[in-house]
Amino acid sequence: MNTDCPMPVTQDEAIRLGHGSGGVMMQHLLRDVVFPHIANQWTSQGHDSATLAIGNSKVVFTTDSFVVSPLFFPGGDIGELAVYGTVNDLAMSGARPLYLSCSLILEEGLSLSVLERVMQSMARAAAVTGVQLVTGDTKVVERGKGDGLFINTSGIGLIEHSLEIAPQRIDSGDSIILSGDVGRHGMAIMASREGLEFEMPLASDCAPLQSPVLELLAAGVEVHCLRDLTRGGLATALVELAESSGRELAVQEAAVPVTESVQGACELLGLDPFYVANEGRFVAFVPREQAALALAALAKNPLTRGSAVIGNVTEGTHAQVILQNSLGSERLLDRLPGEMLPRIC
């Protein structure tokens, strides 16, 4: 009997969808192709935004592109997402978001009423978060060369406190706080895109995070690090933070809230909610003695009422994430390798 594996190596010479999923493939793309050409003190920090000293101010600058399909989904739409996504990246540096740009890439044939609805949604989201859309750009591409509408927003915010909030500040003994249940956005998009119908409805968690973060700071919590959970989910965010801080994180699976509808849909499709995208959740690393204070502050905001301590930073010297499951056994968490694909049976 032949026991050789007939497996030649395949070469990745073109961009594939997995390069955009926030996992290992994207990490390698940035490391090997993008960063070598633009290396500087900011790109090396592995942060979602750059903190710039301008005059006496600390200005935070970030950008994000939104290519979601469908444009409208249960719990949100691309306009709301384009404002909240960039606002959230600014908030994760502890900044007060101030100004956003808005670039529209429109596909020939897009209905004007759709664009109108998206712009109304952006205006509402800007009002909710107290930011202003102050500049922008509009381009039209031929039919078939865009998915209806792509939006890019860049944003700046101001840091009004003296803390440094960054992965490098994560310390052993820190408590890890998660701001709510995970996996809603990814499952809502998947259900809506593929026409999957579940008994219990799935809605995106799309939400602005600047107010809970600013409230956390106002309560006097000495926040060490913040990270919003987007593509790649909770697992990928934790692994990235373990690697950029050089720390070992221990997380209790049972402490991570997952709603029954997300859990059910994930079980059915063979997906892991720890890797499913979110758009309104973050993790905060705070000194253990301040965890109760932080939870109390977060509990006051409806967006973060479901916050919980899900683990802590250990004394361990390996940069890794240990997940303790409900049975008491342990395993290591890894990043999402590439695109998340439902399994066969």
Binding site: M1, N2, D4, C5, P6, M7, P8
Partner: peptide, 12 residues
């Protein structure tokens, strides 16, 4: 025109 290249031990 598949070529079996050993290296992977999946069969075993």
């Amino acid at each position: 025109a598949h070529q079996d290249t050993s290296g992977c031990i999946s069969g075993a």
